[in-house]
Simulated scan of single mutants.
Amino acid sequence: MSDHDDRLRYRLLTGPDDAEFCRRVSAALAEGYRLHGSPAMTFDGQRVIVAQAVVLDDGTPRILPA
C-alpha cells in the first residue's frame, strides 16, 4: 500500500460465474477489501452472471448483528 492510497472504498465485481471471477474476488480480499453483503446471481440466457460487493477494510472493528 502506498502513502497515497487511491483504491476505491467500494467496488462491485461482476462477471461470469467462473474461476476467473473467483480469482478477482480473491485478489480484492488480498488487497484489503472485505465482502459486503451476499453475492447476487442471474442468468443471461447463456451463462450465470454473478456480482459481489467489496469494501476497503479500514481496520475499524465492526459489530455484527446477533
Rank of each mutant, 00 (worst) to 15 (best):
M1N: 13
S2V: 09
S2E: 09
S2T: 10
S2G: 09
S2W: 09
D3A: 06
D3C: 06
D3E: 10
H4R: 13
H4I: 15
D6H: 11
R7C: 09
R7H: 10
R7T: 13
L8N: 12
R9H: 12
R9L: 12
Y10Q: 11
R11W: 14
R11Q: 13
L12C: 14
L13M: 11
T14G: 14
T14M: 15
G15E: 03
D17Y: 03
D17K: 02
D17R: 01
D17W: 01
D17G: 00
D18S: 01
D18G: 02
A19Q: 12
A19I: 08
E20D: 15
E20V: 14
E20C: 10
F21Q: 02
C22E: 12
C22F: 12
C22I: 09
C22K: 12
R23G: 10
R24I: 06
R24N: 08
R24W: 07
V25Y: 14
V25L: 15
V25Q: 11
S26G: 15
A27W: 12
A27R: 15
A28H: 15
L29H: 10
A30I: 08
E31K: 10
G32A: 14
Y33Q: 10
R34I: 05
R34E: 03
L35T: 11
L35R: 12
L35C: 12
H36N: 13
H36Q: 14
A40W: 06
A40F: 07
M41V: 04
M41N: 06
M41F: 08
T42E: 11
T42Q: 10
T42M: 12
D44S: 05
D44V: 05
G45M: 02
G45W: 05
Q46N: 10
Q46H: 11
Q46E: 08
R47F: 01
R47P: 00
I49P: 08
V50T: 10
A53E: 01
V54G: 03
V54W: 05
V54E: 01
V54K: 00
V54A: 04
V54D: 05
D57Q: 03
D57A: 04
G59A: 02
G59M: 04
G59C: 04
G59R: 05
T60C: 01
T60V: 03
P61V: 01
P61F: 04
R62V: 01
I63Q: 05
I63F: 06
L64F: 08
L64H: 07
L64K: 04
L64S: 07
L64Y: 06
L64N: 04
L64A: 07
P65S: 02
P65N: 00
P65Q: 02
A66Y: 02
